[in-house]
Protein backbone atom coordinates (compact mmCIF):
# COMPACT_ATOMS: atom_id res chain seq x y z
CA UNK A 1 0.00 0.00 0.00
CA UNK A 2 1.32 3.40 -0.91
CA UNK A 3 -0.26 6.57 0.41
CA UNK A 4 -1.34 9.14 -2.15
CA UNK A 5 1.43 11.57 -1.33
CA UNK A 6 4.19 8.95 -1.40
CA UNK A 7 6.86 8.98 -4.04
CA UNK A 8 10.04 7.02 -4.29
CA UNK A 9 12.95 8.99 -2.88
CA UNK A 10 16.19 7.01 -2.59
CA UNK A 11 17.18 6.11 0.97
CA UNK A 12 13.92 7.51 2.31
CA UNK A 13 10.83 5.91 3.86
CA UNK A 14 7.89 8.27 4.19
CA UNK A 15 5.99 7.47 7.37
CA UNK A 16 2.60 6.87 5.77
CA UNK A 17 -0.44 4.86 6.79
CA UNK A 18 1.18 1.54 5.96
CA UNK A 19 4.19 2.34 8.14
CA UNK A 20 1.94 3.66 10.89
CA UNK A 21 0.03 0.35 11.01
CA UNK A 22 3.19 -1.72 10.90
CA UNK A 23 5.06 0.28 13.52
CA UNK A 24 2.36 1.07 16.04
CA UNK A 25 3.60 -1.15 18.89
CA UNK A 26 7.22 -0.09 18.44
CA UNK A 27 6.36 3.60 18.23
CA UNK A 28 4.07 3.34 21.23
CA UNK A 29 6.87 1.83 23.28
CA UNK A 30 9.26 4.58 22.14
CA UNK A 31 6.70 7.26 23.00
CA UNK A 32 6.62 5.89 26.56
CA UNK A 33 10.28 6.88 26.89
CA UNK A 34 9.28 10.49 27.45
CA UNK A 35 9.07 9.28 31.05
CA UNK A 36 12.37 8.84 32.93
CA UNK A 37 10.84 6.07 35.04
CA UNK A 38 9.93 4.14 31.88
CA UNK A 39 13.44 4.57 30.48
CA UNK A 40 14.84 3.11 33.71
CA UNK A 41 12.41 0.22 33.56
CA UNK A 42 13.45 -0.55 29.97
CA UNK A 43 17.09 -0.57 31.04
CA UNK A 44 16.34 -2.87 33.97
CA UNK A 45 14.51 -5.48 31.86
CA UNK A 46 14.49 -4.86 28.13
CA UNK A 47 12.81 -8.17 27.26
CA UNK A 48 9.92 -7.66 29.64
CA UNK A 49 9.45 -4.06 28.54
CA UNK A 50 9.35 -4.97 24.83
CA UNK A 51 6.97 -7.86 25.55
CA UNK A 52 4.60 -5.58 27.42
CA UNK A 53 4.22 -3.41 24.30
CA UNK A 54 3.71 -6.45 22.08
CA UNK A 55 6.62 -5.82 19.71
CA UNK A 56 6.74 -8.12 16.68
CA UNK A 57 9.72 -10.46 16.35
CA UNK A 58 11.15 -8.13 13.65
CA UNK A 59 10.78 -5.10 15.93
CA UNK A 60 12.30 -6.93 18.92
CA UNK A 61 15.33 -7.94 16.84
CA UNK A 62 15.75 -4.39 15.50
CA UNK A 63 15.73 -3.03 19.06
CA UNK A 64 18.20 -5.74 20.13
CA UNK A 65 20.54 -4.73 17.28
CA UNK A 66 20.18 -0.98 18.02
CA UNK A 67 19.94 -0.73 14.24
CA UNK A 68 18.10 2.33 12.93
CA UNK A 69 17.50 1.07 9.38
CA UNK A 70 16.02 -2.15 10.76
CA UNK A 71 13.87 -0.13 13.17
CA UNK A 72 12.55 2.00 10.28
CA UNK A 73 11.90 -1.11 8.18
CA UNK A 74 9.91 -2.46 11.14
CA UNK A 75 7.69 0.63 11.07
CA UNK A 76 9.58 2.90 13.43
CA UNK A 77 9.14 6.65 13.09
CA UNK A 78 12.29 8.68 13.60
CA UNK A 79 10.70 11.12 16.08
CA UNK A 80 9.83 8.26 18.43
CA UNK A 81 12.98 6.26 17.66
CA UNK A 82 15.04 9.25 18.82
CA UNK A 83 13.70 8.65 22.32
CA UNK A 84 14.90 5.03 22.19
CA UNK A 85 18.28 6.12 20.82
CA UNK A 86 18.60 8.55 23.73
CA UNK A 87 18.54 5.63 26.16
CA UNK A 88 21.61 4.22 24.43
CA UNK A 89 23.31 7.63 24.48
CA UNK A 90 23.14 8.00 20.69
CA UNK A 91 22.66 11.48 19.21
CA UNK A 92 21.48 12.31 15.68
CA UNK A 93 25.02 12.27 14.29
CA UNK A 94 25.47 8.76 15.68
CA UNK A 95 22.21 7.76 13.99
CA UNK A 96 23.26 9.40 10.72
CA UNK A 97 26.65 7.70 10.78
CA UNK A 98 25.11 4.32 11.47
CA UNK A 99 22.53 4.63 8.67
CA UNK A 100 25.02 5.82 6.08
CA UNK A 101 27.80 3.42 7.03
CA UNK A 102 30.18 6.23 7.91
CA UNK A 103 32.18 6.99 11.02
CA UNK A 104 30.75 9.81 13.10
CA UNK A 105 33.61 12.08 12.04
CA UNK A 106 32.97 11.28 8.37
CA UNK A 107 29.28 12.02 8.81
CA UNK A 108 30.03 15.36 10.48
CA UNK A 109 32.43 16.22 7.68
CA UNK A 110 29.68 15.47 5.16
CA UNK A 111 27.37 17.91 6.96
CA UNK A 112 30.02 20.62 7.04
CA UNK A 113 30.77 20.05 3.34
CA UNK A 114 27.10 20.70 2.52
CA UNK A 115 27.66 24.31 3.60
CA UNK A 116 30.53 24.97 1.19
Amino acid sequence: MQAGTSRQIPGTTLFDGAQAIKGYALNKMCYSFNSAANREEFKRNEDAYCARYGLSAEQREAVRHRNVLELIAAGGNVYYLAKLAGIFGLDVQDLGAQQTGMSKDQFKAKLTAAGK
Partner: peptide, 9 residues
Protein backbone atom coordinates in the same frame (compact mmCIF):
# COMPACT_ATOMS: atom_id res chain seq x y z
CA UNK B 1 17.52 12.35 10.14
CA UNK B 2 16.31 8.98 8.88
CA UNK B 3 17.26 6.47 6.21
CA UNK B 4 20.35 5.99 4.06
CA UNK B 5 19.76 9.56 2.91
CA UNK B 6 20.39 10.86 6.47
CA UNK B 7 22.52 13.99 6.43
CA UNK B 8 20.87 15.34 3.28
CA UNK B 9 21.11 19.15 3.08
Amino acid sequence: LDGQRAGFI
